[in-house]
Amino acid sequence: MKRVLATVAIGCLTLAGCSSGEFKGVYDLPLPGGADLGDHPYSVTVQFADVLDLVPQAAVKVGDVPVGRVREVRLGGDGWTAETVVEVNGDVVLPANAVARLRQSSLLGEKFVELAPPDAAAKPAAAGRLANGATITLDRTNRNPEFEEIFGALSLLLNGGGIGQLQTINRELSKVMDGNEAQIRSFLSGVDTLMTDLDAHRSDITEALDGLNRLSATLEHRHEQVSGALTDLTPGLQALSEQRTQLVSMLQSLDRLSTVATDVVDRSRDDMVADLRALAPILGQLAAAGKNLPQSLQMLPTFPFPDSVLGAVKGDYINAYASMIPAPGVPLPPPGQGVPPGLPTLPLPSSGTRVSSGGS
């Protein structure tokens, strides 16, 4: 029986080497119970920051179901990233932005690559499908912590870590909180109110941040203008800096002037109030004159003639009405008989003026 099994194993090795053309060792042997790749498998390159001890022929799973295997593990072109080439059954459909995780079957079990759609809450699945030759980049891969890493961190914590200080921390927290329950409760209530208000004004905060973003973008587009303005301000600021002593002296002089002016106003306040009170009757009479005063002032330049004579032209006619009252004891002549002796004559206006007279 053992001889038959050995013969079968040798035959399998021979077939594997013949089918691939070159036998590279035990990594070329498919694992028993591996996934069926089907007639048309497709290959995908997966980038990992740390591939750990993943080996070729390891399983590739989707939802804990084997759908492929690892064909090759190699170093990336940047010299830091590990690249894993996996083959997946052609009937398995994954979105174009599928993610990959390096997991292990049990606590001390073998490593395998898990393919899955992206988390719907973080990023929705893409419309296309994962195609042959696609690459799952480093930002869409991760790995679970190793068992050795967990025990190493636990050992660091237990040996010289922070366990010994937990009692001290607990004791100091008790001292702080003992007797200050009301203040702590008030503080937590204030924090709750603050967070509630911030949440209520979330849209305003977002709008303010958007406004700052727009302002920053505008300033970025006007970088040359801002730089030019700052450059042009430099001589002015330099001049102000050089004249700082004179500016300070001017401000001090203004301070002394204001002090003197305040003292003068305080001392002359009573006299000023008395003068204003003395002006009050005059201003009252001027106000009572109303519109008569402006009309009288209009007559002053042309006295004794009104404004109508201003439009007269030399040689034209102007109607003037004059009333003459004779002196006491001087009789008036009958109409049409001239001027009696002793009565002064009224000089007539210049040529071209018609004067109408009447007596009373």
Rank of each mutant, 00 (worst) to 15 (best):
D232G: 03
R269E: 06
I184H: 01
A217Q: 11
T206R: 15
I163N: 03
E172W: 05
T196I: 05
D197K: 13
Q165N: 09
E148I: 14
A153T: 11
Q252G: 04
E224V: 05
S241R: 07
T193V: 11
L240E: 06
Q165H: 05
M195G: 07
A261G: 11
L158G: 07
M195V: 13
R214K: 14
D178E: 13
G236K: 15
S186K: 10
N170D: 14
T259F: 04
N170E: 12
R214H: 07
S249H: 14
Q225L: 11
T245N: 08
G179A: 02
F147T: 14
T196N: 11
L219A: 09
T245L: 05
G152D: 11
L156Q: 14
L212H: 14
T135R: 09
S227C: 04
T206D: 09
L138N: 00
D232N: 10
T262E: 05
F147D: 04
G190Y: 05
T137D: 13
M195Q: 15
S227E: 07
S186H: 10
D178I: 04
D192N: 14
L138M: 04
L215C: 12
F147G: 02
L166G: 01
V264S: 03
V191T: 08
S155E: 15
L233S: 05
L251P: 00
I136N: 00
Q252R: 08
I169G: 03
G133E: 02
L188E: 06
P235T: 01
L240A: 10
G179M: 01
T259P: 01
R185M: 10
M250K: 10
S186F: 06
V264C: 04
L233N: 05
D197A: 09
F151C: 07
A217F: 02
L230V: 03
N159Q: 13
H201Q: 15
D204H: 06
H201G: 12
S268G: 11
R222E: 12
G161W: 01
D232H: 04
D255A: 14
R214D: 08
L212C: 08
G161K: 01
V248T: 12
S186M: 10
E242R: 12
L230A: 07
